[in-house]
Design a protein around this nucleic acid. Structure first.
Lengths: 121, 121
DNA sequence: ATTTATGGTTACTGCAAAGTAACCACTATC
DNA sequence: GATAGTGGTTACTTTGCAGTAACCATAAAT
């Protein structure tokens, strides 16, 4: 997030929300898990995300130190994304957020968060 | 957060970020802890927050089921805010987010998150 | 030439979060 | 009357997130 109101805050919580408190980043991190995933796989697997937003968010996640982007010199072009240690450390927090929400959501809804379970090697 | 792109999402993570992924709500929840705190105390203790935003965020936190607002029939007017069980359950998550950020922040900064430690009974 | 595969990029738009500035209501005190 | 205490409310503005639509580049296959 480029919003300096978040990133320039003296409060660690606020700075953190500037990184993860967005619509798509948590999902991307959650989907990556421990795998290396290609752009097109992410695009196909995360419902409703546009390639424009996916590109942006991956770039920001890379800037924020959560994601590694590995480009290969080959054609068709091939790029793989994976989590850094920092990104991996966020996973249990995301899981606890899901558990928290599902426990206390007023009108319980199904959880359709994409996971990495469906990726084929 | 009124943004329906978050609250109407099928993904529990996205709905959660719609509730907590904002600038001020995490701080407000963090400050409340287990205490009953008055509007003016929150205003005085959370640096830089405007009464306008504080009012809004408290209202939304109440709507989201994280905060209880208790108004007393007296003058001067007295209103007290406290966390619900749902709000209390979020505290350890906020703590782990702080720990995560401080561990992995590129250029470590001081953490000036207001806490409830300074409230006098 | 057209389509497919791969990973994007660009121009534009709408909307909500957050901020600024001013104001409100009631009561009590000086 | 002015100030202070309490808890707000209102009108307006700025900014960035996210979405829409179209396009780009390279290579290979039909």
């Amino acid at each position: 997030m480029k919003d300096e109101r978040f990133s320039f805050s003296k409060c660690s919580l606020t700075r953190s929300m500037g990184i993860i408190g967005t619509k798509w980043k948590p999902i991307i991190v959650y989907v990556l898990q421990t795998r290396k995933v290609r752009f097109g796989q992410l695009d196909a697997y995360i419902p409703l995300i546009t390639r424009k937003v996916l590109t942006e968010q991956l770039k920001e996640l890379e800037d924020d130190g959560l994601v590694i982007r590995e480009a290969f010199s080959e054609l068709p072009p091939r790029v793989e994304y994976s989590l850094t240690e920092k990104g991996l450390a966020l996973l249990p927090i995301l899981n606890s957020i899901i558990v928290w929400n599902e426990k206390y959501e007023t009108e319980p809804k199904e959880n359709y968060c994409p996971t990495s379970e469906f990726f084929k090697d």
